[in-house]
């Protein structure tokens, strides 16, 4: 390693230290608001992509763009429902955990050299929030005491076993390249156009694939697929469903912004102000994710497991090795 962590760590305080309580509260609220906006934008992209519109056909574009708000209101007004002999405690926990975990993952988003929560292991923070989703989704499927719901829960875990290791290697690659697990350090390491995507394209793709898989979205929607009548979502209505759907959208939106920060250098770019660059990159990642994801058919977990373990895992390990060699050669400065 040619670099010490000392200079970078200076950009943010240690731990969760913001000088005053009020600053922390405002920062926290800012993260919640920002994450909700990310989720909403992602949902807009998704609705437009689902409608399958070409750019310019306004007749479909406008109603599609209104869809996320409409669906949200519909669920907000709708009745909640229950099943015979459910595990109410676990259901409540799961329904709340999905959006809370999505917001938690947003806490380590780097913005202007800071993040609301800055630990010396932000990358692992994001990973841990995503891993806790395993438990949340499994509880969601288990609690209603219904067959399709339970099958969905097991599908999610099977999918998790497939995507988790490649995703971890993708995240580790970022840490290796930056020489730090701190999100702000990762962004600082990419200053001046040295974006990680140039040397870690496989890691970026696997990261986005993992994001789609842990939010069981698009081609990785098997845990909530139509063949099991929405699986883990099949017994949810009203506010319960809204919270879970919101959590999924926010998580995917936050993951897009995270990808923009970890692989595309966040605010780094010429002429325009940094915030613009960050927004443009995030939108580009979302457009790419949704544009590709909504064109692909469903990938069943047993089909995906083969690909994940036989193709993606070796590829990501190779990616990490290449980056490690580059680090030893002083490529990242």
């Amino acid at each position: 390693m040619t670099r010490t962590s000392g200079t970078r760590a200076a950009t943010t305080g240690a731990g969760m230290a913001d000088p005053t309580t009020w600053t922390s509260v405002w920062a926290g609220l800012g993260v919640v608001a920002g994450a909700l906006v990310l989720g909403l934008v992602l949902a807009w992209f998704d609705a437009v992509a689902r409608a399958g519109v070409r750019v310019g056909s306004r007749a479909v574009l406008v109603p599609a763009a209104a869809a996320p708000v409409r669906e949200g209101m519909r669920l907000l007004l709708g009745q909640r429902r229950t099943t015979v002999a459910p595990d109410r405690l676990l259901r409540t926990l799961a329904v709340c955990a999905v959006p809370v975990l999505a917001l938690t993952s947003a806490a380590v988003l780097p913005l202007g050299g800071h993040s609301v929560v800055s630990t010396s292991a932000d990358l692992v923070w994001f990973n841990a929030a995503e891993a806790l989703l395993w438990v949340a989704v499994w509880m969601l499927g288990w609690a209603p005491n219904a067959v399709h719901s339970l099958v969905g829960a097991y599908r999610f875990l099977a999918q998790g076993l497939a995507y988790e290791l490649p995703l971890m290697f993708a995240i580790i690659t970022v840490g290796v390249g930056a020489g730090s697990l701190r999100a702000t350090d990762v962004v600082a390491a990419q200053a001046g156009g040295a974006w990680f995507v140039w040397t870690m394209p496989v890691a970026l793709l696997v990261f986005l694939l993992g994001a789609a898989a842990f939010t069981f979205w698009g081609p990785f929607g098997a845990p909530a697929a139509r063949d099991i009548a929405e699986g883990v979502l099949s017994e949810l209505a009203g506010l319960d469903r809204l919270l879970v759907e919101l959590g999924r959208a926010v998580f995917l939106g936050v993951a897009s912004a995270t990808a923009a920060a970890w692989f595309l250098g966040a605010e780094d770019g010429p002429v325009l102000p940094g915030a613009w660059w960050y927004a443009i990159k995030t939108l580009a990642v979302m457009a790419f994710l949704v544009g590709v994801g909504r064109r692909l058919p469903l990938v069943r977990p047993e089909r995906f497991a083969d690909i994940a373990w036989m193709v993606l895992l070796p590829l990501t390990i190779l990616q990490t090795a290449v980056v490690a060699v580059l680090v030893l050669g002083g490529f990242y400065g």
Binding site: R50, A51, G52, A225, R226, D227, R294, L296, P297, L298
Partner: peptide, 12 residues
């Protein structure tokens, strides 16, 4: 296509 999507193809 209902079971596998993708959504735009199903719609078409």
């Amino acid at each position: 296509l209902t079971l596998t999507g993708p959504a735009p193809t199903l719609r078409r």
